[in-house]
Structure formats: structure tokens, C-alpha cells
Design a protein around this nucleic acid. Structure first.
Lengths: 232, 232
DNA sequence: ATTATCGCTTGACATTTATCAAGCGAAACG
DNA sequence: CGTTTCGCTTGATAAATGTCAAGCGATAAT
């Protein structure tokens, strides 16, 4: 681990408020590593020895069952993963792989549990983070069960437009086949859903997205903070 | 609140390990109430003022969007709800109603947050509970995205058979239309899925279920602890 | 006892989504 | 530079799931 990593880690919500002493203890045992794209970091069912934090890059969490696979979520800078498994000392429910060259911190789960016991501020941050993740998954289930795939796509586009500054034009942050899996459909159907949004002012070619009739799109998508806003 | 409730509450995992003093503080502000069936306890989008705990009875958490509704989960004795919202001081993502006459503890969210700051054992229990809930929802998403509705039904039956003692005959713990919604299908399709399981030794009439060829059913269902075991 | 209600089931049908096969085009590679 | 690979798209078709309407039977209400 490079010394230059330390301030970046320290400034993450999970570590920002904790005592210097506890932070030092956590960081002492930490590994920071660069991984190439498409590297499997964790495997579903394995025991969880490290809490992972994405310093830089992109990580996909996915799950398999009976020859099928689905993308569960995409993690970017600042995101943590396998916190719940690390805390409960339970097997991973998801596998994880890098999508691009990524820099990952790995904190021994044992250290995390020990510091959690000692440092209140850290315990508080862990709970906040866990509650945040929990609410994220609940929103995901609501989207899956209450919306059709075209509606999910429409809301995904609106969400990213907002996240990327509200410009009418922006770039898809993901390969389409992965986006399809995140949204719970096949790549073929994503293509068709994209076509279905054309009358609502959505022009997608390659990675580039242009939303020309945002109001029409919103009428279809009916976004709500209780599903689509990662905060709140 | 009756004094006779106190030992029952104290023995729940969330409160078992905490200091007497903290427990007293929590319980001082608590309400315990009996609700009739079909009572709305919390509403999606509302601010969350109380952490709820089911002492007795059954509560359904559900969500709405655009004239549609879906059941998210069914809670029974000992379950907590709206912990994440209470901790984060955020709006409810789900609504909740009683399905039968139920006895519910309500702890002011503010007290929960305050005691959380003071009492380590309680903080630890909260984190464990949250991580448990998080993993539950993740398992739910995996089931929804990786399995067909017949497969979800098959696994649901096997799970409840196990939970109710492993007997070949048992009773559905839920109305079928709610089961359908939990499993992410319509009541009509649940009827058809039940028929589709007949060749696998599943006989359902009314609430009563009989599984005559468990091995055949398991071959279809392919249960895995990483989706179907609430613990682990 | 009679009637009304309600949850469940069934059939016919529509819609949505997945699968399979083929082809296109940009990027990667020899 | 040509070739290959790979992700994406499209069309045809199949499978899964939802919708609508009707009827059944148990339970609740009158």
C-alpha cells in the first residue's frame, strides 16, 4: 500500500469519523492492489476474509444459479462490498469481478470486526453504510417487481442523465449486455426496449445517449425517489 | 405496555446482549399495541418515527408504484422492520399492514439512534440484524432474476416444509394471492404453477400441501443455501 | 336458510420476454 | 492490410407470464 492512498481512504464516509488510532489499526493490515479487467475478486459461496473498497475503477457483483448468471450491481469509486458478509462472518452471496483496471483496498474482515467493537464512530459508519446498501437492494426489488423492462430502462436513463449533470447528451457508463443483465433482461430485449423508447425522444447509438423529449420520457418512466434516488 | 411483555422483548436477539440501563431507556419510551387484521402500520414515503418489532402475529411489507402493488416480505414473531429507515432517519421504502391480529412494539427511532450511540452491544446487534436483512433481500433478488416462477414456487414449498419440521404434509402459512405476490406472479399463474408441480409430487388443496416425491421436487427446484437458507 | 362475498381456479387470449439463428460493423489481432 | 473476434442488432419463433371473463365453492352476512 502506498502512503499516497491513505488520505483517499481516510476521506471515505466509512472512515472519515473514526479515531486516528482505530484508522491506523485498520490500515495496518490492509492491502491495496491494482487488478486488471475481468479479474474475479470474490466468489459466491466462499468465506469472506476481506472487506473490499473500490478506490478506482469498476466492479461488477453478480450471481449464478443453475447455469444462469445475473448482474446484481455495478460498483464504482468509493463503494464498499461484502460488508454484510464480513460483519456476519458469513459466505459471500455474490461473486465480484473487475470490469476495468481497478484499484481495490482489502481490509481483513477480522480487523473490521475488531475495530467495530472498539470504535463507536466506525460502528456508526458501518451501520449507515449497511443501511444504505440495504435500501439500495430494496429499491432494486421494487423496480424489478413493479416495472416492465422498458420502464426500468427509461428510469435508468433518467437516473444517469441526472447523475452526469443533467445534460441532454451523455454516455452509457456500461456495456449494453451488462446493462441488460442489471435491468433483468436479455441483450436482445434491451435492443428492442431502446427502440421502443424512440417515440419518447431517446436516441442511442453506441454508447452515446441523447434525450430530446425529457418530459415525454418522464411521463412514461414515472420516476420516484423511493425507487430511483440512491440517496433518500 | 404490560410488564409481562418485557421479558419477551429482552430475549429478542436485538436486545439480548445490551446493558440493563440501555434496555430500560429504550423500553421507557416504547409502545406496545395490539392491532386488528388489515391495519396499515406504516406508509411508503412517510418519515419513519418508530422501529417496529413483531411480538406476535403477521405483518406484510409491500410497495406501490403507478397503480401496481407488490408484496415484499412477510414478517412474523421476532422480526423487526424499518430498521434501516430508522437508523438513517430516512423515509420508508415500504408500507406495512397486519395480516392477522398482531402485537407490535414500537420504539421511537430517536431513542434507538441515541441508545445505539451509547451501547456497544446494542450497536452490534443492530448491525447484525441489518446485515441479516440485507442478505435476505439479496437472496430475494437472486431468486427473482435467476429463477422462473415455477422454480420459485418449488423452492418456497421446500423451504417451508423444512421450516415446519420436514413433514411431508404441512399447511401454507399464507393466502395464495399473497404468496403469488411474494413470489412475483399473479394469482392465476400461481394456480397454474401449482398444477405444473403435480408431476413432481406436489398436491395442494386449499391450504394443505403434501409433497410425495421430495427428490423429484428437489431435482427441479435445485435449492441452494445461498438463496434459500435464511440463515447463512 | 338464503344470499352475498370473496378467494381461488380455469379457459381463452394478449402481451411480454426469451431463444435461436443470422448478419452487421467496429475494434483487436496477426 | 486483411482477417478475426466480439458485441450488438434484427427477425422469426417459442415460452413464460399477464389479463379478462366466467364459474365454483367455502365462508360470512342477512
Amino acid at each position: 500500500m502506498r502512503d499516497s492512498d491513505i488520505p483517499a481512504i481516510r476521506s471515505l464516509p466509512l472512515f472519515r469519523e473514526m479515531a486516528d488510532e482505530s484508522f491506523t489499526e485498520l490500515v495496518r493490515g490492509a492491502y491495496v492492489q491494482n487488478f486488471p479487467p475481468n479479474m474475479e475478486l470474490i466468489v459466491e459461496g466462499d468465506q469472506c476474509d476481506f472487506l473490499h473498497i473500490v478506490v478506482d475503477g469498476t466492479v461488477e457483483l453478480f450471481a449464478n444459479w443453475s447455469d444462469r448468471e445475473t448482474a446484481m450491481t455495478i460498483l464504482r469509486e468509493g463503494a464498499t462490498f461484502i460488508l454484510a458478509a464480513a460483519i456476519r462472518d458469513a459466505p459471500n452471496l455474490m461473486s465480484g469481478r473487475t470490469l476495468e483496471r481497478s484499484r481495490i483496498i482489502m481490509l481483513p474482515a477480522e480487523d473490521v470486526r475488531r475495530v467495530f467493537e472498539k470504535d463507536h464512530a466506525f460502528a456508526r459508519a458501518v451501520v449507515m453504510e449497511l443501511a444504505y446498501c440495504y435500501r439500495g437492494v430494496v429499491k432494486g426489488v421494487k423496480g424489478l417487481k413493479l416495472r416492465t423492462s422498458v420502464e426500468r430502462l427509461a428510469n435508468y436513463l433518467l437516473k444517469w442523465q441526472k447523475k452526469l449533470g443533467g445534460n441532454s447528451q451523455f454516455s452509457l457508463p456500461l456495456e449494453k449486455r451488462r446493462l441488460a443483465s442489471i435491468l433483468g433482461m436479455t441483450p436482445e430485449n434491451l435492443s428492442r426496449s431502446i427502440k421502443a423508447l424512440r417515440p419518447y425522444g431517446v436516441e442511442i447509438s453506441g454508447q452515446s445517449v441523447k434525450i430530446t423529449k425529457p418530459d415525454d420520457l418522464k411521463t412514461l418512466a414515472k420516476p420516484t425517489p423511493l425507487i430511483d434516488d440512491p440517496r433518500s
